[in-house]
Amino acid sequence: MNYVEPSSITELMNYVTTVEDYRCLAGGATLVAMMNVGLVEPELLISLHKLDELKGMRIDQNVIRIGAMTTHTAITDEDRLTGNASLVRSAAGQIAHSAVRNMGTIGGAISHADPSADFPAALTAANATIEVLGPSGRRVIQIDDFFVNYLETSLTEKEIVMAIMVPLSPADAIGHHLKFSRVDGDYATVSVSLALAMEGRICSYARIAVGSVAAVPLRLKEADDILIGSNLEESEIARASELLLKSSDPIDDVRGSSSYRKFLIPRLIRQAVLQSKKELSYT
């Protein structure tokens, strides 16, 4: 295996276009684990850690641009992630443990597209967009179109995630990522991500995504629409949950059976909505 560390986008694209069998290396928390057991052994490993454009966060016109190589720790510590974007911070802090958060990156996490990971659901609820670069240039992918199947994204071959853009607005929204796992730091059995805003007693904004219950994060506009304009009464929350539950298709695995996951879905949604409602009524 050859190893390179391009320091410019031109250099990066040169490798990507000329080598057939390559892999990009971000934090390595998934890729190196797969290499250790012999699942992947690319001819060329391209480290992304010298590319300045993939680093750091900046705010532009009410949208925070998070470079693909930003670690989970840096996101957890970022106090400019406010309003709607606070959801992303909430999720980052619940991923694994410090030693993994110090390594893993948001770009690596979404490119791997594990439906039980935390960012896919959180970024779906946060209405993010993904900036990608390929041999034919740049494009932006709406998060609802990014995850295609288990471990599969809509990135075409040779495309690389450059940044994740998260709107800060609604500025008065609060975001929660509610994660249920067997032990602290494990992948979620089920997670619920929610951005919510209220005007007085009326819900003015809601976007819910459920993680770990289907091949991709589960989000239904119809469910959000039930909550928006309502008082977030128990019956309304139950109706929205019912829709999401019906569309879920969880697998049986070591973290829980399909039926147990279905048992959790409405309970976690209710808890996430009521917790957010309570917090908003104090602000």
């Binding site: 057991v37 410090s98 030693a99």
Partner: peptide, 24 residues
Amino acid sequence: CNHGVCGACNVLVDGKAMRACLLL
């Protein structure tokens, strides 16, 4: 475990704890 789960290989890199089994 050699895949990042157990923590027995933790080292500090620039003062931050990381898994030596997942770092090239």
